Each structure stands twice: as structure tokens, then as C-alpha cells.
Amino acid sequence: MVWLGVLIFILLVFLAFSAFVAYKMVKPPRFVGDWTPEDLGFDYEDVEFTTEDGLKLSGWWVDRGSDKTVLPLHGYTRSRWDEVYMKDTIEFLLKEGYNVLVFDFRAHGKSEGKYTTVGDRELLDVKAAVAWLRENHPERAQIIALVGFSMGGIVTIRALAELKEVCCGVADSPPIYLDKTGARGLKYFANLPEWLYYFVKPFTKLFSGARELNMLEYADKVERPLLFIAGEKDPLVKVDEVKEFYELNKKRNPDVELWVTDAPHVRALKLHPKEWKGKVGEFLKKYL
């Protein structure tokens, strides 16, 4: 019976390790920087607003005097201070003359929240941001757009289907098959085998309370302008997965577009700044 005791011990250690990995996944380290829109040459206001489930979110409001406002949405483990894509995006949008409302998703940056739900309850975060904008600056909330990266891209897609106030959106490197992206992420970020994800996943749901998202369901729901950006060298989100959503959505949405680059995950702006700004700029001018 010694072997049975050893087997049970190994199993318990494996489950404990899976739970530890899950905990680290849903409670990412907080990324906080020291730059502000002032460093880009723009006055700004520190703002806070509260979600339906009672979390205070922290952000910046930059008023450019326009009736058009864009919300840039960061990805998993990042924040408004990200310098890979958020800083350049914020600067680009401000120079284009749009107002910008940017904030940290729950459990990221300086916002409250113990756990991330990677696209589920983060929709409530965008809903709270839009409500704050409409209440405090109604003249600036006539037209609202989103530019989301990775997890922010998931939320952008969902917002276009579920929030009537959002007129159009850009989804850069959005995961479509969240389980596949999660498994790849274990290998990419932690050098762990992809199969481990399927033992880790139940613990992530237990800790965070997140419900499972089927992003392909939204291909039948989005009927507003949407620009996808996908990268052929993306180790987390395959181009074919984004194309699948695009092709399905195109059947009911004449205003969906797809731009495929050679970039890794959320790196199109960094590697091809002129092209990215051209594509996104044209899209926003067309639909804002």
C-alpha cells in the first residue's frame, strides 16, 4: 500500500501546483509606471469611477474639446502605463484630436479588484467608464469608440455587441479561443506544458468567479464597425482564429475589416507604426 500513498501524495502535489499556477494567472503583478499624458504634452485629470459590482477603477481623462472620445483598453498583466502599445496609442489619439479616457482594468494598475476575469467582468469596467463619461462630460460623449489590445480586444468585441453607446472599435490581437490562448500562454510566459492549462483552468474559475466566454458567439451579434489586427508571428493568437471570427461576422456585418501583419502579439504598432496609425486613423475617421 506504500505505492498508493506515494501516488496520492504526488496527486496532491500536482493539484496544489495547478492551484498555485491558477492563482498567479488570475492575480497578475500590478504594472504601474511614472509617465502621464503631461509627458506627451497634454493636460489631464486623474479620475475614478465605480463598477456595478462595487470596484473603484483609476484612470486619466484628457479633454481635447471634441465630441468624439476614444477609450484605449490595455491587455492582460498590463495597464495604462504600458509602453509597448498604450503610450503610443494614447499619444496618437490625442494628436488626432480625440478626447481620451483611459483606465486600468480591475486587478491591474491602480484599480481595485483582487482577480482578473480576462474579458468577462471587464465589460463592466468599460460600462462604468462610459457611464462616467456620459454623466460628467455629456458633450464629449456624443460618439464613443474603443481601441483594445489582447484582453482589451475581447472587451471591445463584446462592447460592440452589448453596449449601445459604443459606435465602433479596433481589436488588436484579440484571443478568439480563450482556452487555446491560455494554454499557449502557459508555455510562452512560464515555460510550462500547454496540457497543464486544462488542470489549471478549473482553479482559475474557482478563484476569480469568471464565467466561460465563447467569443465566436459574438460573430453573430456584432453589427457595428470593427477593425481586427492580427499578427502572423503571434505566439498566443493565431491569425486563422481571428480570420474565422472575421469571416463569420462578415456575413452580417458589412463594416468589419481585417488587417494581417507579420508582427508578434500586440506588436504591430511598435513594428509598423506608420501603417498602424494609417489603418486605425482611417478607420476612426470613417466611423467617428
Rank of each mutant, 00 (worst) to 15 (best):
K238V: 04
E139F: 08
K164E: 14
L124A: 12
V155R: 04
L186I: 02
I90Y: 10
A219H: 02
D262R: 08
A128K: 01
I154C: 11
A210V: 11
E139M: 02
P72Y: 00
E38C: 02
K27L: 11
L284G: 13
N99K: 03
N214W: 10
S58R: 15
L40C: 08
G5E: 14
I143V: 15
I229P: 01
G97S: 15
V280H: 06
D104H: 05
L271C: 03
H108P: 06
G169D: 13
K95C: 01
I8E: 09
P235W: 14
D53H: 06
E38I: 03
L236W: 08
F199H: 08
Y198T: 03
V280F: 11
L284T: 03
Y198I: 00
N136E: 13
F105M: 05
A128N: 06
E232P: 06
A190E: 12
R224P: 01
W60H: 12
P202K: 11
T117D: 01
D125R: 02
D240P: 00
N136A: 02
L258S: 05
V84G: 00
K279N: 11
G113W: 08
F42I: 09
A161P: 01
G54Q: 07
F199Y: 12
A183W: 02
H265P: 09
E257T: 11
G113P: 12
R158I: 06
E275R: 15
V239K: 10
E162H: 04
A16P: 04
G209N: 05
H74T: 05
A171E: 02
L248C: 01
D46Y: 06
V102W: 06
V26W: 04
G148T: 00
E165C: 02
L160P: 03
N99G: 13
F31A: 13
L15D: 08
W61I: 07
K114I: 13
E91R: 02
K286H: 07
K95N: 14
L133G: 13
G41S: 03
F105Y: 13
A268P: 01
S208E: 11
L133S: 13
P28M: 13
F203P: 10
F14Y: 15
L124D: 14
L73A: 10
S18I: 07
C167G: 08
K127V: 07
V62I: 15
V280G: 04
